[in-house]
Design a protein around this nucleic acid. Structure first.
Length: 687
DNA sequence: CCTAATTGACTTTTT
DNA sequence: GTCAATTAGG
């Protein structure tokens, strides 16, 4: 092995003495492509950050380093940790960001070469779905057998990530949905006309850019000579192409990941990327990190045993020195509310026995809707909690409407947002009027915002509606000018939403005063986050930038009750828990059809579900509880539930089975004594 | 022609 | 319990 420090003859300034030999090797191997297979809890983040710091200590320009991650959180964490190892001004020059924001950054500078303008908007999922609905309507496909907007959206994404054009779609030989090529091509056309890009475009368009303009690729290669990719097992085909284009034959490429934790196959992640890394990049080295610093051997052995049932994988032998620890407790509850109550009781009990704080606990589940009973039980038991993801803030109707109003101002070509809020609050513009508007667009090819004020359209409306429409268009125009001036963005947003009648409209729209107040509260929250953004980005803040950070927010940024993050119990899906760890983890809903989920049992889905369970189990440091119910209400009707298949895959010697009534007796007598002592102490305080 | 109230259907995971 | 599509009034 040829190390940079040997080549240059100077010793590293970074202290690597805390690292184990495999970790040290992963940090210092710089002679060609490198694959670091980092099992759960083996210090992956540490290795990446050390590698970056070490490269810098070897004299590498920090600005030549690019670290790509999947979540904003991971990127943020990496930046912070690098800043802790080298001078903050130096760390700042390293580019650590998500694939998507890297794409956005590049496109903001060069997208005009592809026929968009640099002020393009990023469409979120719901926006895309609305558009697809509309296209399906135009083609009279709605309501037909097997036609759902979700399905088409998913397939559009799949096609894009395989870098396919509508012309490449062969509906006969492969299982594309009805008239998919036509829907796909209309979708692309419409998005481009509106100067909008979707999430996939942020990657796909970069590939197009690099393909069509080699000089741009060359410039990027020159800039980013040292590449790191985190969570490589989650890369999709486009991301693989991006990575290999950028790496070329000269760059220093290091990817880190764990095939056993690949849980985004449904989103197009190709596990093959990590399994075949050494074929894709000849001469690549692979280093395995197998010492786990997180979990007890009981938890680790159980997880290893379950995951061993999967066929295609890099075999790893994780081990740990954390001691045997407690057995895994499997608890059978009567129904979902009993399950949730038990979990709340359990958290109280464990807190009393072990001490520590509520943030040491996390409750994980397979799908979002399982959070409801848990939330209720937490409230009932008066336990602080925070909820990650789910149907929270971001996808609320009121927030989406407010954002649409903002997008209108920012992007005059944005027809879709206009259609969304045209009649919010009701202005007298119904289906017929919209139909006419769309007819006019078809004839003239002009953006809806322009057509809106044409006599040709307004004269067909009642005089009241006509006036309302002119008022609306005026307001947009007025604020477009105001937002063009720098400063005071949050306040402008507030004034705009008030002037356009949205804030008051909410009160009329929702008769229930409590709900109306709630919705208003949400919108004010949005304005607050605009103020936050403004504060952070200083004079450079503009509406476009704010909309972008909002669009690129990921699940982990969508925390409800954020103030509880430091002091409450975490409630989240297993997906959202990836990369996190907790002393005590409780996985709820360990039932057949739920986990593994019945929708994913075909084509390799089972193995991904098993990996998902593996991720869940390996989040736990000390204690792991798995709960399931006998009876659960599914879509309103009660159903008899069977325990999850995965429960049977845990070796019996590592677990004990019990129910809520006996769970606490099952704890070791030593602990019970300890608990009693503490209880007595608590009561003895009283006179 | 638009709006409000009632019905009916659907809920895996997310950058 | 939540949302969109359908239908009765205004």
């Amino acid at each position: 092995m040829r190390n940079l420090d040997k080549a240059r003859g100077n010793p590293p300034d970074i202290d690597l003495s805390d690292l184990n030999p495999a970790q040290r090797e992963a940090v210092c191997s710089v002679d060609g492509p490198l694959l670091v297979l980092a099992g759960a809890g083996t210090g992956k983040t540490r290795v990446i950050t050390c590698r970056v710091a070490w490269l810098i200590a070897q004299g590498v320009e920090p600005a030549n380093i690019l670290a790509l991650t999947f979540t904003n959180k991971a990127a943020r964490e990496m930046k912070e940790r690098i800043a802790g190892m080298v001078a903050p001004q130096v760390a700042e020059q390293v580019l650590a960001c998500t694939f998507h924001s890297f794409g956005a950054r590049l496109l903001r500078r060069h997208i005009s070469r592809l026929g968009y303008t640099e002020s393009f908007d990023i469409a979120d999922e719901y926006y895309c779905q609305d558009l697809i609905k509309m296209i399906l309507g135009e083609l009279s496909l709605r309501g037909k057998e097997g036609v759902s907007p979700e399905r088409y959206k998913h397939e559009v994404s799949r096609a894009k990530n395989r870098l396919l054009n509508p012309a490449d779609i062969d509906e006969k030989t492969t299982s594309w949905p009805l008239a998919f090529a036509e829907v796909y091509s209309r979708y692309l056309e419409r998005m481009k006309a509106m100067n909008m890009v979707d999430f996939d475009d942020l990657l796909v368009l970069v590939v197009h850019l690099w393909r069509d303009f080699p000089s741009l690729l060359e410039a990027c290669r020159k800039q980013y000579k040292y590449l790191l990719v985190d969570e490589y097992q989650d890369t999709n085909h486009t991301q693989f192409v991006m990575t290999s284009m950028l790496a070329g034959s000269r760059a220093n490429l290091c990817v880190v990941g764990d095939d056993d934790q690949s849980i985004y196959g449904w989103r197009g992640a190709a596990v093959g990327n990590i399994l075949d890394f050494q074929n894709h990049f000849p001469g690549a080295r692979a280093i395995r990190l197998e010492q786990n610093y997180r979990s007890t051997t009981t938890i680790l052995e159980a997880a290893n045993h379950v995951i061993a049932n999967n066929g295609k994988r890099h075999v790893k032998a994780l081990w740990s020195q954390q001691g045997e620890g407690d057995k895994i407790t499997v608890v059978r509850a009567e129904n979902e509310s009993k399950e949730a109550e038990f979990i709340a009781d359990l958290i109280r009990e464990r807190l009393a026995v072990r001490g520590g704080s509520l943030r040491d606990f996390a409750v994980l589940y397979r799908s979002n809707h399982l959070s409801r009973p848990l939330e209720q039980a937490m409230k009932q038991a008066d336990l602080r909690y925070y909820l990650i993801g789910g149907r929270s803030f971001y996808q609320r109707k009121d927030i989406l409407d407010a954002l649409s109003f903002l997008q209108l101002v920012w992007n005059r070509f944005d027809d879709q947002s206009l259609l969304r809020v045209l009649n919010v609050p009701p202005r007298g513009i119904g289906g017929k009027a919209v139909e006419r508007l769309l007819e006019l667009r078809k004839l003239s090819g002009r953006p809806l915002q322009e057509l809106l004020v044409e006599d040709e359209f307004v004269n067909t409306l009642s005089s009241a509606a006509g006036a309302a429409v002119r008022e609306l268009a005026d307001c947009i125009e007025r604020y477009r000018r105001r937002f063009g001036q720098p400063g005071g963005m949050a306040e402008k947003i507030r004034a705009y939403l008030a002037d356009i009648g949205y804030l008051d409209g909410l009160m009329r729209l929702y008769r229930d005063r409590k709900e109306a107040a709630n919705r208003r509260e949400n919108v004010l929250e949005l304005i607050n986050s605009a103020a936050d953004y403004e504060e952070r980005s200083g004079s450079a803040s503009d509406l476009g930038g704010f909309l972008e950070t909002f669009a690129l927010r990921d699940q982990n940024d969508r925390v409800e009750n954020a103030s509880a993050t430091d002091s409450g119990v975490g409630l989240m899906t297993v997906h959202a828990a990836k990369g996190l760890e907790f002393p005590v983890v409780i996985v709820a809903g360990m039932e057949a059809d739920l986990f593994p989920h019945h929708n994913s049992l075909k084509e390799g889905g089972m193995e991904e579900e098993r990996r998902l369970f593996y991720v869940a189990a390996t989040r736990a440091r000390e204690e792991l509880y798995l709960t399931h119910t006998v009876k659960r209400r599914v879509q309103g009707t009660p159903r008899i539930q069977r325990p999850s298949l995965f429960l049977r895959e845990i070796p019996v010697r590592h677990s004990i089975e019990t129910d809520p009534e006996n769970a606490f007796q099952a704890a070791s007598s030593e602990e019970a004594a300890d608990y009693m002592r503490k209880l007595k102490e608590m009561f003895s305080v009283e006179p």
